[in-house]
Simulated scan of single mutants.
Amino acid sequence: MSWLKQSDVSANHPITLRALEMEEADDRILNEVYGWVNRCATQSAAHDQDYIVTKGTAVAMAGSFSRFEALAAAAIFCGYFTEVMITVEGEKRKAFKLVEEEDLFHMILKADKDWTQQRQADNRDLAKTGPVRLRDGDACRYCGRVVGWGADRKSVRWGSIDHVVPGEPGTVATMVVCCGQCNSKRKNDPNSIWKTLPVPTEPHIGPTTAAWLTEKCGTPTKPTYTRIPTESVSPAPVNGQQATEEPPTVEQPIVAAPVEDEATEATPGLSSDSVASTPDHAVENLGTTEQQPDPEIKSEIKTDHRLISDEESGRSGYAGSGRDGSGQVGLGRAGLGAQLPAHPDPAAHLKRPPKPAANPQPSTRRKRPRRRK
């Protein structure tokens, strides 16, 4: 495929700006010469002319003979073109050679394009690539690195077929397995400084190559190696055992040791795990020992050096364990405790008369004097 690459800095290249140094330069000569040369370069690349611009192409792109002469003189002055002689069908003709400057225009040469097409054709030929991969296996013949035949062409282990003699059609003898790194570094190797390793006596053939040789090339092949399956292992913590290991089990006693509560003693011989294990007489005895608060007397709780009455705090006035005002006293740390006797009138505190204000404020409303009739 033919193509022309125009550099991003070509419009401000020194060769382009040199048009303003001409004695007969005007306001349009800079852009006119640049555009004309650009069109001539495009035609040269499209017809595989290798930077050669024929006179006929130059006249056609200029639009007229008179304008062609002015533009050709300006292009030669700037350094775009040089006059050359070419041979066409045994006849010498005058033409122009476009400067080979990558910061201006760059085109692929016809020889490079033909070599690319030949290399691609050789890589698609199973009669060549099949025997090469069967002979070399999956190891690079330049460095010995094991290659992979996936689609990741950026990897250094990308597997490819390389031509030992570049520029010539490949054969089984002149084609070798090559890794991506060696193929990129070697390029065309014009001086042949890269030497291949000897042909392996036991090729390193993996499952992918074995399947490809069997299915695509019709050569039944068994792999000589398989990859060791790997399992993901969780990283070990900085201080401690592996995260995947279970912590060692600790033997628990069948019956936990009893714990005495500071506020209430557990009844001997009774379990504190459930309320059902507490006999009724224990509840009665406990009720006789606890003093019921007088409904007419307000208890006060001292918290943070302040006195808060039961009405202001919303408490019920019952002695409890502190578990959300349940009014139960625990027999142990795990027990729910015994229920206190019911209050004779739970709503008694709601029937109390409102508490008079401590310091009533005198009314500031003035009385209006009576009118005498």
Rank of each mutant, 00 (worst) to 15 (best):
A111Q: 14
A121Y: 09
I108S: 13
Y80P: 05
D138T: 00
K110I: 06
Q49K: 12
Q118G: 09
F77R: 03
Y80A: 03
W149P: 01
V88I: 11
E83H: 09
K154Q: 11
Y80S: 03
A45Y: 03
D136Q: 05
D122T: 00
A75R: 04
S155Q: 11
D125G: 00
A139W: 02
T129A: 06
T82G: 12
V59P: 05
F68T: 04
G63H: 11
V88M: 04
K55M: 13
D103M: 10
D125R: 00
Q118W: 06
E91P: 04
P131H: 01
R135Y: 04
R93D: 06
G130A: 11
E100D: 15
T82Q: 15
F68R: 06
A75S: 12
K113C: 04
H47K: 14
K94H: 11
A111N: 08
Y80V: 06
N123K: 14
L71S: 05
R157M: 07
L126R: 13
W149H: 02
T129C: 07
E101L: 02
I76T: 11
M61E: 14
W149E: 03
Q49S: 09
K55H: 13
M61F: 07
H47G: 10
G90R: 02
A151I: 13
Q49N: 10
F81Q: 04
T57G: 04
R93C: 08
V132A: 07
L126E: 12
L134I: 00
K128Y: 04
V88N: 00
K94P: 11
L98F: 00
E102C: 08
A151P: 11
L104F: 02
F77L: 05
V53T: 04
E91V: 12
A74F: 02
D125W: 01
L109Q: 07
S64D: 09
G90Q: 02
K55N: 14
Q120F: 13
A73P: 02
R124I: 01
T87W: 07
S64E: 06
